[in-house]
């Protein structure tokens, strides 16, 4: 339990937020129904509606893009003094020895790190591959969900709904997408830059409190 605290903690926060979103979303949806003298919908009817799917999926793609880019770019880009960066001289893919793969694998290394060949190549990039795939899938989900929301708005105004292909080249889609991207990139930039000079005692996201500002690749 203690050794999995971080994943359990965030998992519970995620589920609690999602549940809260479902109930507040239902209340908001029914508020609008009542205002139009329409019948309210039930909980299960709401959570299986596209309205809920739109709201749930909307921010996911940008979160995955953020982590995907951080994982991939941090291989080659470093930041002096930031605990988010590895040591300056370790820029790049590093040697097989440093990465403990193939003949340099240790007894407790994962099987695919020892295997060599395509298995080791795939495993060596598995985090980025999975992250990138989830980003693409969630962006696709956003485009479908976003189109549904857009089409619904069009219908409310007695206009034709248009098509998904029209939607993905529309200013509406790109505005929603870039709105999310800019905030994620700002958050990463802040984390990288502020952690050079600021500290959080005991957090692995920070350097030790007494560590020098220019020390790189150090965790607290």
């Amino acid at each position: 339990m203690v050794t999995n605290g971080l994943s359990i903690g965030f998992g519970l926060l995620f589920l609690a937020s999602l549940t809260g979103q479902a109930f507040s979303g239902l209340a908001y949806f029914n508020e609008q129904q009542m205002a139009a003298n329409l019948e309210p919908v039930g909980f299960w009817q709401y959570v299986t509606s596209s309205s809920f799917a739109v709201d749930v999926s909307e921010n996911w793609q940008s979160e995955y893009l953020q982590f995907f880019l951080l994982i991939i770019l941090a291989v080659w880009l470093v930041q002096k003094g930031s605990p988010e960066s590895k040591e300056i001289e370790k820029r790049g893919l590093e040697s097989d020895k440093d990465q403990m793969i193939g003949q340099y694998a240790e007894d407790d290394s994962p099987a695919w790190a020892k295997a060599g060949g395509w298995k080791t190549v795939v495993f060596s990039n598995s985090l980025g591959l999975v992250m990138g795939t989830i980003f693409v899938l969630s962006w696709l989900a956003q485009s479908v969900a976003g189109f549904t929301a857009y089409a619904q708005e069009q219908l409310e105004n007695l206009q034709d709904p248009g098509s998904w292909t029209e939607y993905i080249v529309s200013p509406e889609f790109w505005n929603r997408t870039l709105q999310n991207w800019q905030s994620e990139f700002l958050a990463v930039w802040s984390m990288v830059a502020l952690s050079i000079f600021l500290r959080q005692r005991g957090s692995p996201e920070s350097k030790p409190v007494g560590e020098a500002h220019d020390a790189t690749g150090v965790q607290g």
Partner: peptide, 21 residues
């Protein structure tokens, strides 16, 4: 490790959302 746990949760939720929708 935290990322992986979060992926698993998010992926499960995505499947659930997609299926129910």
């Amino acid at each position: 490790m935290t990322f992986r746990a979060l992926f698993a949760l998010a992926a499960a939720a995505a499947v659930a959302v997609g299926a129910t929708a």
